[in-house]
Design a protein around this nucleic acid. Sequence first.
DNA 1: AATTTAGGCAACCGCCTGATG
DNA 2: GCATCAGGCGGTTGCCTAAAT
Length: 226
Amino acid sequence: MARTPCCEKMGLKKGPWTPEEDQILISHIQRYGHGNWRALPKQAGLLRCGKSCRLRWINYLRPDIKRGKFSKEEEDIIIKLHRVLGNRCGWATIATRLPGRTDNEIKNFWHTHLKKRVERGEVQNMMNPFEEAQGASSAGILMNMPQVGVDASGATSSVTEKVLIANDSLLSRRNIPPIVGLGFYGAVSSNVSGEIIANNSHSEIGEEMEFWYNMFMNNHHKGTKM
DNA sequence: AATTTAGGCAACCGCCTGATG
DNA sequence: GCATCAGGCGGTTGCCTAAAT
């Protein structure tokens, strides 16, 4: 059975927001907050669905929105993170790293500017911290794999050992994203059920690496649950 | 000056996930 | 365990504007 649509289309307005609608939404949220987006338009007297109100607020009206051109630093962060995360678990996560920027804005900026530059090879030397740490010519990455016992050729055994994973094909066969290279730092190991778990070494590598660590953990769990 | 094309971006759509009953 | 709701997210569309012809 099909889900009921998020909003009743009949009588609800679509398309660009008018300044009057913006003002109504801002005033309402400033007075009452936005606890329930679905109920908000009715309470505020707007002929919009809750989703539309939420999007308008988050992407345009929020007071902490930063508008204007992206800085070089912001570009670098987007490119680096996109390399790691890809489109699929990325824009919102990247947005958390760029205060005042929205996922929609970052997504648009990627598709209209950065994607072309990356495709043209203008940013090909941009590496994430793991790649930088390993060096571009590194033979592989080291992981603690107590239960898997996978050697560099991909063969399995019951032996608990540190494993050097030599190439991307092995990673892809095991459905592990390349960022598993964090294991190079000794910050990752896996438990008996095959789930990646943390040890405490990542706490010593600073805020930036903490961020990348969390990024890895999220990415890994998403990548392995399928 | 008029028309066409391309780029930029706001907004919508549909799917997914977590919470709740 | 299942159905439904609500919020969140990425993909995509379509409008607007500036540049090119």
